[in-house]
Nucleic acid binder design. Sequence first.
RNA 1: GCGCCAGUAGCUCAAUAGGAUAGAGCGUUAGCCUCCGGAGCUAAAGGUUGUGGGUUCGAUUCCCGCCUGGCGCACCA
Length: 552
Amino acid sequence: MKPQEYVHAALQKALKKSEFQLPELPYISLERPKQEELGDLSTPLAMSLSKPLRMAPRKIAEILLQNLELDPDYVEKTEIAGPGFINFYYAKPCLQKAVLEIIRDGERYGRSDLGQGRKIQLEFVSANPTGPLNIVSARAAAVGDVLTSCYRTAGYDARREFYVNDAGRQIRLLGASLSARYMTELGHPEEVPEEGYHGAYLLDLAREIAARDGDRHGKLAADERAALFSQMALEYMLQRQKASLDKYRVVYDLWFRESTLRDANAQEHILRKMAEAGFTYEHEGALWFRSSEFGDEKDRVLITQNGEPTYFLIDIAYHQDKYERGFEKVIDFWGPDHHGYIDRMRAAIMALGHPKESFEVSIIQQVNLLRSGQTVKMSKRAGEIIEMDELIEEVGVDAARFYFVDRRISQPMDFDIDLAKKQSDENPVFYVQYAHARICNILRYAEEQGVAVPESADTSALGNAQEVQVIKKLLEFPDVVQRVVLNTEPHRISNYVQEVATTFHRFYHEHRVVTEDRSLTLARLMLAKAARQVLANGFALLGISAPENMYL
RNA sequence: GCGCCAGUAGCUCAAUAGGAUAGAGCGUUAGCCUCCGGAGCUAAAGGUUGUGGGUUCGAUUCCCGCCUGGCGCACCA
């Protein structure tokens, strides 16, 4: 049992034994004090009980301590401190044992059954297939990918999904833009539509098509040609987006196409369900959804006066489809420009009979583009978009992913293009990878010195300040993963990995691993192995590589 | 005008369900390699947590007002 779990259970027992007059068992909060001198775990329980019990916190703490039974192999000391905190100090035997448990768990270390196998879906990026993925998508891709990994590790059956808007006006425009480029290429100049897509990527594609197919599409009727070019442009863009994400190590379980919903007339299904429940009405020739009954600021149109389904209606159908595929929870990652959309989507989900909490939207704040400290307006027209591929090319996948995940998603972030390259030298990702490589090197060195590194060894020689610090840090890993999931805070995992690296570097500088003392050497090799395992597991969640050598 | 999000060291960011003395990196300054990798380590300087109130044993965290910035407020997608 992990020491945290042990203390929690012991406190629960003590609480019962103390026979306080309480309506229900209170929540037992356990936290790590900021200062080391205040112990390894601390609970403010006595303070929070002070009011309901109308008793001094320190008095409550005393009663709790009297009823607390602790195995000295787990906890060597307790104390009441400050206004009424109860602090716990871990005993060395359980820390020494923990090192071997981490090694034994291997790549499974960090897992928990918090999610109990619940099916959960994360939808992220879902960029329109009208251009290459840009740097904003790179943030969403990194965040969504890492979060999904953490959900899996925390015991959820989590899936990644990309929603492809392959129908509607913008695809028609995309086709028209490509068609115009193609005709121009054939010597019949046509203007790219005002609202169309002017990027160079379509020009390249048009040339490719012209070289391959010659002028035979030029003979088609205009609308026929438009349809054909829409299809060609779409498949090309999708393939390109997939390739970028692949390079970025983001692999989706499903690329869901909007057209499958339209082909199946999924919107009819929604309209029927909503009408049956009495949530729709007609007004001025349009069909409306009473979303205001579910907290939206006003009702929304589902079918326009022209009889067209709105994008909103199709989106409802998409989300209904998610539920029908068995997902108990659905998390969407949107840009800040879509936050106004949340209330109506949630309203629809509630109207369809799904629990309010089953639908969650996380807004990933924007990426501000800077060039030498100056803000750059990103617009497709001005050609100022930075493509994801360029980013990967410039700074590398590891650095890019780490950079995006290392900040909390609610914080807008600046991305200085000129700094990005320079930053690759100073990027914290190298710091953590260096720690991993260094440990690998120590293990190699030990072998060279004739010390075979065993699977397991006696660790009772571990106990100095730096060793203990490393072990305690390693023990936090499963909690960190759970917190990432519970609070949608992927940056915690990258922060944590940096802390592990720091504690290990510190240990390394104070003590040699390979020494004359054989049992001490073996014990420290175990510590090094455990640290390497935790780093590697953290890197796996982050989707970055775990180099055994930094100088190759 | 209404709504959502944010504001923490010179810069980029943290702060674990409201917890104890707000912490890291970069940059600045001063140290540390006869020793398993110096892409490392140790230390110093740097703060009225935008601002004014409130809630309580305790507030960067929760509530209200104000200031600044971003983004929304379509029968567009």
